[in-house]
Design a protein around this nucleic acid. Structure first.
Length: 824
RNA sequence: GCCGAAGUGGUGAAAUUGGUAAACACGCAUGGUUUAGGACCAUGUGCCGUAAGGCUUGUGGGUUCAAGUCCCACCUUCGGCACCA
């Protein structure tokens, strides 16, 4: 940043800070509150990049606008600072994650201030601060107490060479990112949070929100509720050992077409099957299970992949026709979805069909489609349409009718029931890493798992010398004996602490509550304060958080709502969610350090003598739609500089002309343009259409420059113009404002201009004349003319006569003050 | 694979939701100004055509007086997919 801008920045920053214009009081009336939330960043080592600047400036323009509209705006910022990159960096540089985080947040904050982001820093939070995460831990304890957190064996990615657990991101093409060894799956005992208990509420709650459609859709799809039936298939392992396989299906009406069954390789029945089968089979099955452990879920269900599987040698009974059907094992069935077992209806499911083809299994069509179909060629999957066949008593019914009939029948016979299944899976909450919130649980050999006492919170992360994950797959915390060994909160006997830490989501799913009451020592948040500020009026964030972060966050909020921690009148935390776009590197690739395409906002600001941050801010808002994805390209920056230069010049020449009295008369046309611009800019900012708001301001400047003779523009017009521009260019507008008003109060303490709707109407318009839908002429007309009057004028025009060729019009379409279309 | 979004000039993009396609800006061209360069000012700039005129919003079809916008089919690109945050 150049000296000139640096000086202005420091000058105004201090004045605004002293005025406390960004700080918001809890005492102001609730009616005028506006809670504007923008996702807090992960403070990486490379500093703020241009994408951060883009979304934060957008949120900031919106916040400044609302303040000037007289709203009591809560616009806070904090740090989501736990995470793998910091931990990895600490390992690499042999430094402490705490110190790195402190450095990174300091850099981020300094850069944010340079960008003139108007956050209320008195409410700053940091997820790695024990004063903050004691409440993250407190929430976990409540989840445990309500039975929503439990331990279970779950698979993780495991690198057998590095002997550590890997995040999905660290697995590239099935290989370890660090050493290149083949990654396997390994079961370890992990904390699971039962988000599925809230599936229905998370769905229904969406109706109360005003999220943009695509966000709602992604939440609905992720929860993925499907109606169907749970059905029991009996199976005989031996003459004395009778078992059953429970399956979930969305199409119980196709039960007559079920010709085989498939178990997931993790299915619990496999242990029993392995005991009864032949030695050869045993070996074959074990081999298959071992292989499937290497694959991720995504690979397993990939339709393009060749189906694999192994026959158990056993048969189950199809409950409708008592037919014996073979039981197979295949990894395209997931243990985490449904019951981990399926009935296969190869005629009407593509995956089942491929499996049947490969292993030569029977295919029985049970739905006859309306069009031609050969079941030897592919499955008929459009099962809502058609007629039931080969299905005994439900023949000739429609699939819908058959569905209800089957549910009733299954229930009567006691072999099945109506069931709802969710795509949503329970939340794996454990991480075997150091840099996260310790899970506040203690294992006592006598009393089992016990939560830490709430008065002992926070359970602080101990300072360690080594952060490297351990050979056993346990968290590095397990190495610190004096920390691990503790006493049982229940019986007082010797016990051990949980050494896993929480996922990154844990700290970020409730942070918006802490901003409301960041210093509270007694409670997570004061209920009265929460009542005043909730719900978040607008939540601005990236697409990548529209599904998971938002869902987890809503879940935790709903859980806290059940506990009575948050006000009962607000069952949902976020009123509106909008997602901002992404700025890609100049090469149209996602910005990343390794690609070397990261654009640094400080460098961009530094290119301009004066108004560095103002130019960058306006440019970012002008470059494209706020929701859009765009590649960084700084060609047009110079256009913004010209824009500001022109304004400065216009103001100077107006002041030179009339420093005391405003004797430039405002003509009616200028009045109209002013009010139209106030309307447009206000509306656009409200709808986060910042790019067209800026374009509107540019148009306004061009118009008033053209309208005013001798380049003198009325000071009143210029004042309004500066007010409209001020959310985009704070320093520039404040400087110019002071120039005009001399020793006035800050522009940010002024009110946003209001428009008069009577004055936004043009007196004259360009009227469009079409012949057969083609534009043939445009004429200047005064507004308010009736159809007859317009017809009289246009039929006299020689250009129009030419097109009519003396014929009589068949039809005339007339839109007042806009267009006439003559059809001949 | 599943889910979602998007295809408009040389470039970034607009288009009040069915009513003037290309606003605003960059770039480019010509002229002016300038010792030169830069900066600035003025004019022009979708494509074809000397012109009259014709054509134009990924491709093909449809609805309508009228389609970038609505409907059907197709092509292409991008994003998310549960341990990155």
């Amino acid at each position: 940043m150049s000296y000139q801008h640096q000086d202005l920045f420091e000058k105004w920053f201090k004045i605004w800070e002293d005025l406390k214009i960004y700080q918001v009081s809890d005492l102001l009336p609730k009616e005028k509150k506006e809670y504007i939330l923008v996702e807090f960043p992960y403070p990486s080592g490379s500093g703020l990049h241009i994408g951060h600047a883009f979304s934060f400036v957008g949120a900031d323009v919106y916040a400044r606008f609302q303040r000037m509209k007289g709203k009591n705006v809560l616009f806070p910022m904090g740090w989501d600072a736990f995470g793998l990159p910091t931990e990895n960096y600490a390992i690499k540089t042999k430094s402490k994650p705490q110190e790195i985080t402190a450095q990174n947040t300091a850099t981020f904050k300094r850069q944010m201030k340079k960008l003139q982001l108007s956050f209320d820093w008195s409410r700053e939070i940091n997820t790695t601060d024990p004063q903050y995460y004691q409440w993250t831990q407190w929430i976990f304890i409540q989840l445990f107490k309500k039975g929503l957190a439990f331990k279970k064996e779950m698979p993780i990615n495991w690198c057998p060479q590095c002997k550590i657990g890997l995040a999905n991101e660290e697995v590239v093409d099935g290989k370890c990112e660090r050493c290149g060894a083949e990654v396997t799956r390994r079961n370890i005992s992990q904390w699971i949070v039962k988000i599925t208990d809230y599936a229905d509420r998370l769905l229904q709650g969406l109706e109360k929100t005003n999220f943009i459609e695509k966000v709602k859709r992604s939440q609905i799809n992720w929860i993925g509720a499907s109606e169907g039936a749970q059905i029991i298939f009996p199976i005989e392992l031996s003459s004395s050992q009778k078992e059953k396989i429970e399956i979930f299906t969305t199409r119980p009406d196709t039960l007559w077409g079920a010709t085989f069954m498939v178990l997931a390789p993790e299915h619990p029945l496999l242990d029993k099957i392995l005991k009864v089968c032949s030695e050869k089979k045993n070996k074959e099955i074990k081999e298959y299970i071992k292989k499937s452990k290497k694959k991720s879920d995504l690979e397993r269900v990939d339709l393009d992949k060749e189906k694999t599987g192994v026959f158990t040698g056993l048969y189950a009974l199809n409950p409708v026709n008592k037919k014996e059907i073979p039981v197979w094992i295949s990894d395209f069935v997931l243990s985490s979805y449904g019951t981990g077992a399926i009935m296969a209806v190869p005629a009407h499911d593509q995956r089942d069909w491929e499996f049947a083809q490969k292993f030569g299994l029977e295919i029985i069509p049970v739905i006859k489609p309306d069009q031609e179909w050969n079941f030897q060629e592919k499955a008929y999957v459009d099962v809502e349409k058609g007629t039931l066949i080969n299905s005994g008593p439900i023949n000739n019914l429609s699939p819908d009718q058959a569905f209800s009939k089957m549910i009733n029948w299954l229930q009567e016979k006691g072999i099945g029931r109506s069931a709802k299944n969710y795509h949503l899976r329970d939340w794996i909450f454990s991480r075997q890493h150091y840099w996260g919130e310790p899970i506040p649980m203690i294992f006592c050999p006598q009393c089992g798992w016990q939560p830490a006492k709430e008065e002992d919170l926070p359970i602080e992360l101990p300072k360690v010398e080594r952060y490297h994950p351990t050979d056993t797959g346990e968290s590095p915390l397990s190495q610190i004996k004096e920390w691990v060994e503790t006493t049982c909160p229940l019986c007082g006997g010797p016990a051990k602490r949980e050494t896993d830490t929480m996922p990154n989501w844990a700290g970020s799913d409730w942070y918006f509550l802490r901003y409301i009451d960041p210093q509270n020592q007694e409670k997570l948040v004061d209920l009265e304060k929460a009542r005043k500020w909730l719900p978040v009026d607008i939540y601005i964030g990236g697409d990548e958080h529209n599904t998971l972060h938002l869902l987890y966050s809503r879940f935790i909020y709903q859980f806290l709502w059940d506990l009575g921690v948050v006000p009962s009148e607000h069952p949902e935390p976020y009123q509106k969610r909008i997602s901002h776009g992404v700025i890609l590197g100049p090469d149209s690739q996602r910005m990343s350090k390794s690609k070397g395409n990261v654009v640094d906002p400080e460098e961009v600001m530094g290119r301009f003598d004066k108004y560095g941050s103002d130019i960058l801010r306006i440019y970012l808002m002008f470059i494209g739609p706020f929701e859009g994805t765009m590649a960084w390209n700084d060609q047009s920056l110079t256009g913004i500089k010209r824009f500001l230069d022109k304004i400065e010049k216009a103001i100077q020449s107006s002041l030179d002309f009339s420093s005391t009295k405003d004797n430039c008369s405002i003509n009616p046309r200028m009045e109209t343009i002013l009010h139209q611009t106030i309307q447009k800019v206000s509306q656009d900012i409200k709808e986060t259409k910042f790019n067209t708001a800026v374009a509107g301001l540019m148009e306004f400047l061009n118009e008033i420059r053209a309208q005013s003779q001798e380049k003198k523009i009325s000071v009143k017009i210029l004042e309004n113009f500066l007010l409209l521009l001020s959310p985009f260019a704070p320093i520039f507008c404040e400087e110019q404002w002071q120039k005009i008003k001399s020793k006035s109060k800050s522009i940010f303490l002024e009110n946003w201009p209001e428009f008069d709707s009577r004055l936004t109407q043009d007196k004259k318009i360009e009227f469009v004349v079409q012949v057969n839908g083609k534009v043939r002429e445009k004429i200047d007309l005064s507004t308010g003319l009736k159809q007859k009057e317009v017809e009289e004028i246009i039929f006299a025009l020689p250009q129009i006569k030419k097109y009519l060729l003396g014929k009589k019009p068949k039809k005339i379409i007339f839109l007042p003050d806009k267009l006439i279309n003559i059809v001949i």
